[in-house]
Design a protein around this nucleic acid. Sequence first.
DNA 1: CCACCACTCAAACAACTGTTTTAAACGTAC
DNA 2: GTACGTTTAAAACAGTTGTTTGAGTGGTGG
Lengths: 233, 233
Amino acid sequence: MKSSPSSAADADPGPKYSETATRILNAAEGLFVELGLEATSLRLITQKAAVNLAAVNYHFRSKDALFEAVFARRFAPWARECLRELDALEARVAAGKAVFDVEAVMMCYVRPALALSKDPSLGGALFVRLFSRVLVENHRQVRETLSRDWGHLVARYTVALGRALPQLSSEEVAWRLHLGLSVMFHAFAGNDILKLFGRSAVSARDPDLIVKHVVPFVVAGMSAAPHGRHPAA
Amino acid sequence: MKSSPSSAADADPGPKYSETATRILNAAEGLFVELGLEATSLRLITQKAAVNLAAVNYHFRSKDALFEAVFARRFAPWARECLRELDALEARVAAGKAVFDVEAVMMCYVRPALALSKDPSLGGALFVRLFSRVLVENHRQVRETLSRDWGHLVARYTVALGRALPQLSSEEVAWRLHLGLSVMFHAFAGNDILKLFGRSAVSARDPDLIVKHVVPFVVAGMSAAPHGRHPAA
DNA sequence: CCACCACTCAAACAACTGTTTTAAACGTAC
DNA sequence: GTACGTTTAAAACAGTTGTTTGAGTGGTGG
């Protein structure tokens, strides 16, 4: 386990940040999530972090680079965790101790996301919402930076899901993964299409509750029969 | 049909806008979707609309009010369409010509969304993406303005879905609706969690293709057995 | 003591923001 | 023609934005 060569579990611990740089990152993280990239000024960040304005341009080059650093700090370890889960599942299957079913594959995504949401430092929960924002307002910088890592992750999930759903075409598998990941992502991010406007009975903030409701939904959706059951009206 | 009193199909055609006001609305719509609210300056809007800068503050009071107008112009007729679909389904059920199944209820949402996506003026497709943005970056103004109408819509869908899924508790129905609407919304908006970073086989821009893949997924997810099939590992 | 280092500080920079103002053009009714 | 309300034009408003500057801090090794 320790010496698996091509695994990503043991790689680069990421850059270490100084005391004030970390304070900037933490403050910026919360504000970026709350207000968005454009709406958060450097002065707001430095004020919340209790550091000097010029510090952000000293430690990070620019505001955009700061945003990238905020994102990368959380994304890298999370992606590693996802890959570790997939490796573990493959190992269990190879050992005959498990099979590739949809729920097993999806739990390789849910568990890291759940861990993020329960991160006691709250940084993880903020990151999920930040990622969700990045998804709809697509900043070129982040997209370029992370296309590699995220593309790799998606490829791994695709083959795993394809093995769990051998009756589906690869195009259909890609669609199912797309839909499933999207609903889980926004669920964990707390983007309540119901709650945002007008109140609803659903209080989607307890991570365990999210999992309990979202996993059956996603597993059933992914396992649905291929389209075209009846010609429709 | 024409004289149904409490239906929303026949209500308020909305404000009429002058020539230049319409040009401003159209230009702003595209830019708000592309860049977001904060990142779009009035000068960019007026330049794209080929009108004077002061025109936007003359026709609309402020930038925020403009945004609200942009949103409301598309939202109101779309919400009316959704209510009309629900009314029509209820009427067919009452006449014994149809039953409340999950697919029928969801099609009451899909058809208006599909119509938006196929709007030849492209404004509809832009609105779906705009709504998706509003959902994650939540602007208080829009939230306050639309909480009434959207809340009403959600309530209608909830009771309809509840009739289609009588075996589920009302809390579970709310969750299923939340998840289903969310995945459909982001699918129509083209928020490709797969495609955004790194390319994917899925080209999620053809509205009919979206429906073909997303409806079976959502119907299956909503119809899933209540959670707790097996104690899990 | 000095030089060097990573770092912080307050101040200033030019550019851009939403909004307002003032002046001019427009078509229409008297 | 002249007066009118409506719409547009360009300029100016005060405030904020990201970024840079240059002096100054405290600590470490020679």
